[in-house]
Nucleic acid binder design. Structure first.
Lengths: 225, 225
DNA sequence: CGTGCGTTTGAGTGAATTCAACGGCTGTGG
DNA sequence: CCACAGCCGTTGAATTCACTCAAACGCACG
């Protein structure tokens, strides 16, 4: 990795660039009708290459969107949380797969109905477009993380994002496993684990339990110790 | 990197997943009015954080879209070629920067005019949305490359993409420098260079000149030699 | 024919990986 | 309510792929 001075810089969750607020441009329940369905942990919602007949909206739970290589290497493109809309495709086929990370309640609406609604309702069409453009901006953010950050930076960046989404200040409750985090950040499960303990030793955070992490802002020694 | 067996698999440019055809959903000249402006090599078109008052369409040349970290590490999110539309933002501010890779002719149209046009023309609004969703799918593809592929796979993937865009079969004419390629693939310039010579030794391609590469499909020994 | 930038090559280092074993939490059945 | 099983997470040791630092090469341009 391109590294250089990264570990000499303090890694402060507060300096993580603010992400675009999700509530903006979200779709209301009225514009996203349909019965909620439950999905169990690790259940597939749709698979790459399948037909893209529905758009989805999460009522509760966490979803992972990912692609896999032939030999099984997996890249999670994004996690989707409560209120998020996913599975939006322009073509008839899925370019990635979706699975429930935790138990979920999800509403599915036919793509055809959404497109028809957008045709008639210019404001809705605009919000659908804005949502896509915002997702694209987030994807660009994540590319910077994947391509140019170190393991420590990746993990801090991820925790900062999740904290921002949860709005619980510096306390992060993880709904996903270390493997999921690794596949999101382009690391191995061992590196994620090791990096968390190193960050803890450096005082950047506290691993209260595997799925519960408290972020401690800047004051943190370089990497001596 | 997650690697394992990658170099034992042949890396065949023909097996690179077909990308979405760019001609689909493109915007016609009529729908993208404005005078063309020339940009010189490495000239900035817009910068991260600046106001997003225009959408751009390339008549000739190549553009890089990128983000940079405070210490200068750069990630190129995408290259844009002839016919491509870029600089499309939902918010008023740029989330990334754009520069001319080569001399370019580019048309700029006010964002307000585009949005007004989309309001009145449902079909245009739909194509604008479809373009954004397709760009997002391409971003997801690139995340898989950045997060889970080896240097050799990254370089082959990149060359396959460019070949696909140029439609010149197996001959690739690069308009960008090794540094640009490195920053697109999350590698260093030295690794890109070394990887190209290794791939050449393995018979996967021929570096006819620095900016001209001929792809030779599969028949290629593992990595002995 | 020099000059300079972009590219290639070399040597050594290091961050993250692989392979392996151990630890600890959770949830279920006795 | 406790004990056990299984999964998830952590830690250790050795390896490796890509990086850093450094120098040489070569093509384009003046």
């Amino acid at each position: 990795m391109a590294m250089a001075t990264a570990l000499n810089h303090p890694i402060d969750p507060a300096t993580v660039e603010p992400r675009v607020a999700r509530s903006q441009n979200a779709f209301g329940a009225l514009e996203f009708p349909g019965a909620a369905r439950r999905y169990g942990r690790n259940e597939e919602i749709f698979g790459e290459g399948g037909r893209a007949d529905y758009f989805y909206r999460i009522l509760t739970g966490t979803v992972r969107l990912y692609r896999v290589l032939a030999d099984g290497r997996r890249q999670i493109a994004a996690f989707q949380f409560e209120g998020d809309v996913f599975g939006v495709e322009a073509s008839d086929y899925r370019h990635l797969s979706a699975e429930a990370v935790s138990d979920c309640e999800i509403v599915a609406t036919p793509r055809s109905a959404m497109l028809r609604h957008a045709e008639r309702n210019g404001d809705f069409a605009h919000r659908m477009w804005a949502r896509a453009v915002t997702d694209l901006a987030e994807a660009h953010d994540h590319m910077l993380v994947l391509g140019r950050q170190t393991a420590a930076e990746k993990v801090m960046s991820f925790l900062g994002d999740v904290a921002g989404r949860q709005g619980t200040g510096t306390l992060v409750k993880l709904t996903m496993s270390r493997q999921d985090i690794a596949d999101y950040l382009g690391l191995t499960i061992e590196t994620v684990s090791r990096t968390l303990t190193q960050l803890e030793r450096r005082g950047a955070l506290e691993v209260q339990s595997a799925r519960r992490i408290e972020l401690r802002s800047n004051p943190q020694r370089p990497l001596d110790s």
